[in-house]
Amino acid sequence: MNGGLTGMKKRKQSMKGKFKRKDWQFATLTSLLIATLVTFLCWAILKEPPGEDLTAEALAPLFVQSGVTSPVTAILLNFRGYDTLLEVMVLFLAGLGIWSQATVDPTNPLVFSSPATHPTKPNFHGPGPELILATLVRILIPLMVLVAGYLTWAGGFQAGGAFQGGALLGGAGILLILAEPQRISTIPPALIRFGIVLGPAIFLLVGVSCFGYGGNFLQYPQPGAGSWLLLIEFGAAISIGITLTTLFVGGRPDPKRLKGTDQP
């Protein structure tokens, strides 16, 4: 959806006010196709109700075995754990892709200036926006990390889980970079790599160690399944948060600019 929107935006920009006849043709054809698709989907959904053995009551005993009480987490991590593993791997690959494409100067990761990096801007008397931003960040970020941890843990019995906690962590990371961009230069790149790899690695390790309990790959041992799931969720949350922040920064730290930077 994002890609389509961006593409359409660019196209609109380049053709200001020049609607030719073939554009109208294209537009009508597309609308017709989409209308057909939507009608078909509505008809399919309204015609066949879900089967008897897929209702919540029928599946309830299975959920008890899964180790968590939230049905979403049970399906996501236990019954369809392999799909979630692939999703985590896809995110990992996205992070790898960004890292391999570009380098970013760690002392100035965002090319535009923010009040924190140019404190010498005049026009304000007294404490300016940079003070507000710094204070807000100092209060918010620990809170965000705490809430992210709670969300990840709470995924076992209510809405939440690894992806939600990871998204919140990613938001925290982005906020940090927007407020104090030069802080990136103080983080050793090895730690960032470790964070990106942690989620997929824990997922794979747990999957393989299930063999030692007599099950197939990712077939958790019955009594303790909940704790395995929690382990996976925490690793995945950390990994997702760090990967999202890396995606925002847009590249790996330039090794040439990394040596000997001062603390802000």
């Binding site: 393989v208 160690s209 063999f211 030692g212 007599g214």
Partner: peptide, 16 residues
């Protein structure tokens, strides 16, 4: 490590 995991399983009586 995978072979050691297998031995752990055999020790516990699982059959691969």
């Amino acid at each position: 490590s995978l072979i050691l995991l297998m031995i752990l399983g055999i020790y516990q009586g699982f059959y691969y």
